[in-house]
Amino acid sequence: MADKGDGQVAAQVDRELTSKEAPEVARKRWIGVLARADQDATEELWAALGRTDAYTVIRGPEQGLVMVRGRAGGTGRAFNLGEMTVTRCTVRLAGGAVGHGYVCGRRPEHAERAALIDALMQLEDECQVVDAQIIGPLETVEEKRRASRSCKSAATKVDFFTMVRSE
């Protein structure tokens, strides 16, 4: 009984996510992928897509800072650790869709490209192709890099034995 109850709640939460938060969750995903992505890799995929969309830059690209925060003890009181460089840009497609790019570092061209891709990702007819040919591949590259780092470290996992002292 309890299981069934939990399942129903979960299903309901899922539905709510789809209706309300899903667009934000989905957009968070691709904005994040573009923010971290390598510029050359992005440009290569963009060029392969062969698009020439007309758009207007309505803000930026602008370089700036975000103050990165940490927490005392990892989970306690927030404090300011230090700043990082960030570049942002906002564009509008001829059709009206507005895209935002927020990328790490000082990368104006990349921020503009990210904003353009974000705008295209909001078009129902375009998003699948752009996702499959740009966001997806960038995500794969990132996952591979993370996995490779993780595998290299995994080989350094160690077991310490506490030696019994002989009298």
């Binding site: 602008e62 370089q63 700036g64 800072l65 975000v66 103050m67 990165v68 925060r69 940490g70 927490r71 990892g74 989970t75 927030a78 300011n80 650790l81 700043e83 460089t85 960030v86 942002r88 993370r146 780092r149 993780s150 290299k152 470290s153 350094t156 077991d159 310490f160 034995f161 506490t162």
Partner: peptide, 27 residues
């Protein structure tokens, strides 16, 4: 020389993908 866009959400080190992690208290 740069403008401040704002403050980040505090980073969650519990979600870290660790490359090194040692403890001198528990083996």
């Amino acid at each position: 020389t740069l403008a401040r866009f704002g403050y980040s959400i505090p980073i969650d080190t519990g979600q870290m993908v660790v490359r090194r992690r040692i403890s001198a208290t528990y083996k």
